[in-house]
């Protein structure tokens, strides 16, 4: 049975913070094509605040995700603050109190991400939002799990589905948020939220695979 400990898992949030910091400009540039151009700035602000908080108050994966959630939800604002805040809250609450994280714990945590974000956002697949990355990624993981595949294989398939999901937003018309008013002009550009979500799920997969080895 492939697992890693909740304590070791804190590395996942550490790596996510690094990924956002490194991709700040890229995410803002993508957002700038059909949005305000501040997605990377806001994400970087929240994740960097989380870094500072975790340096003073470290803990396991559930703890780190909960702190990240609180900062995003209460301090960042915009649309991405509440959306990612809810996402990490759903993730954290499923993992809280678990010593070891294996395929079933991760499956529940991924579903927790999706259900908590859906509780505040009306976005559906096809609307050109981060949901277009998250839904296929979670589905791919659950499918691999149902087929009895190993944890690391399920993570790989989740990551691959996230990339396909992100890329699918390119040809979509934005239906929600500021870009929705662009109509046809929103086509041909990746959605910034779908892109950051793919980046984060990729880090989740890669770091988890590294940890189970």
């Amino acid at each position: 049975m492939k697992t890693f400990s909740n304590k070791e898992g804190a590395l996942i949030i550490d790596k996510m913070i690094l990924a956002i910091q490194e991709n700040k400009q890229y995410l803002s540039d993508i957002d700038g094509l059909i949005g305000d151009g501040d997605h990377g700035i806001n994400m970087n602000k929240g994740f960097t605040m989380c870094r500072e908080e975790l340096d003073n108050n470290p803990g396991d994966l559930a703890h780190s995700a909960k702190i990240l959630s609180k900062i995003l939800m209460m301090k960042i604002g915009g649309s991405m603050g509440p959306l990612y805040g809810k996402l990490y809250r759903g993730f954290a609450s499923e993992l809280s109190g678990k010593d070891e994280i294996g395929i079933s714990e991760m499956g529940a945590a991924l579903e927790g991400m999706l259900s908590s974000i859906q509780a505040i956002s009306p976005a559906k697949p096809g609307d050109k939002t981060l949901i277009d990355t998250l839904v296929p990624a979670v589905e791919a993981f659950k499918k691999a799990q149902a087929e009895g595949k190993e944890f690391d294989v399920a993570l790989d398939e989740m990551k691959a589905a996230a990339i396909v999901g992100r890329d699918s937003t390119k040809d979509m018309l934005a239906q929600l948020g500021r870009a929705s008013r662009l109509g046809e002009r929103s086509r041909g550009v990746l959605d910034a939220g779908a892109t950051s979500c793919c980046l984060l799920l990729g880090v989740l997969a890669d770091t988890s695979i590294e940890l189970v080895k």
Binding site: D36, D38, N42, M73, M74, K75, I76, G77, G78, S79, G81, P82
Partner: peptide, 9 residues
């Protein structure tokens, strides 16, 4: 809030 960005909750 920040420039053109909703204040947080």
């Amino acid at each position: 809030g920040e420039i053109f960005s909703s204040p947080p909750a």
